[in-house]
Design a protein around this nucleic acid. Sequence first.
DNA 1: TCTTGTTTACAGCCAG
DNA 2: CTGGCTGTAAACAAGA
Length: 383
Amino acid sequence: MHNRVKLELEEAVDWNSMYPESEVYSGIHNMHTGLPNGSFLPSDGSMTYMNNGVPGPVNSIQNNIGSLGSMTQSMGASLPPTAPSSAYPVNYCHGESGFQRDPRTYRRNYSHAKPPYSYISLITMAIKQSHNKMMTLNEIYQWIVDLFPYYRQNQQRWQNSIRHSLSFNDCFIKVPRSPEKPGKGSYWTLHPDSGNMFENGCYLRRQKRFRCEKTRSGDGERKTSKTVDEQSKRLREAAYNELSPTPKTGVKEDSTVPGIPQPTSASPDGLSPVSEVGSSSQLLYPLSHSEGYLGLSAEDAQLKQDTLSGRHPFSITQLMSVEQDSSYSSKMDMCLTNDHLPQYPNYTSDYNHAVMKNGQDTQSSLDVNYYANMYSRPILSSL
DNA sequence: TCTTGTTTACAGCCAG
DNA sequence: CTGGCTGTAAACAAGA
């Protein structure tokens, strides 16, 4: 997967026919949905990703997160009316979902197109959105499956790739389970210094591969357990120590590990200022393609301005910064426990399900306090 | 037995 | 053209 949209559709797509000029992204927000006009969201709630190069789930992330508050303002959009909670979760994409499509607006369902994200991107997104900024392999699987129907098929194939990516890439760190939380598989988190992998806003392909120096040997590529450098070793030990009240033998309890930035924030809650998050533009599509995305005319200067400034609604900066809002989880909790749960029949996706499910799973499977802030600060601040 | 994790190999694509 | 990144397949080991 590279700086292009890799579409794996069953049939060729005439993109031109899919996007009337009137729907070409203008950078002007749709005031009803809070999404850009160009998001081409069908009004029937069918899956939308690929229509604009941005996965529907991410649109829904946008919606979902935006509905939580802080996104709203930046989007300059009103929120859809609250729908009854029975609308959740909505299987946004499957033909068998029972959705009654409006023939006037129905164009095509891209639910099973391959998302334009590399596995590394998916893993990164999954981990970043997780409550504790780390996930087990299975949770990553589940997050992906919940979000992208495409991955409900050929699971052996892509899951192997996921495992390969986790092991192969330095940006992912395996964190052993604590003795108090036995189970299968370790947790995976992001290397504290890996935050700029998707700098310049491309979640399709990293600008530069994150590499942990000294980790490489031989062909200079492989991350091998035999050649794990001291830093990585310490990283893991430190992570373990943060996870476990009983430090690993031989590891100093208060070890200040090189490579693991220590909290420096003077914030009352100990969290780093979120503002750092927005320091770089993180888009979900490549601006490097001057001709636009998917053949669309994306030369709109305003769009670029917005995206580069982090104001673009699809900007990862936006998406992540809101998630990282310290109030986010509490808002999510609120959403889970009252009728204010944002339900948008037209836009609800499995993301809602995924996030909440994940949140619930995470909260149930992890001691939130126990794992609190594990790596989150350095990761977030480096985004 | 199944899942998880590591490693090797190779092919395709893209940027420089 | 070359090197880097990514996706895929496969073999293998270890652990639950």
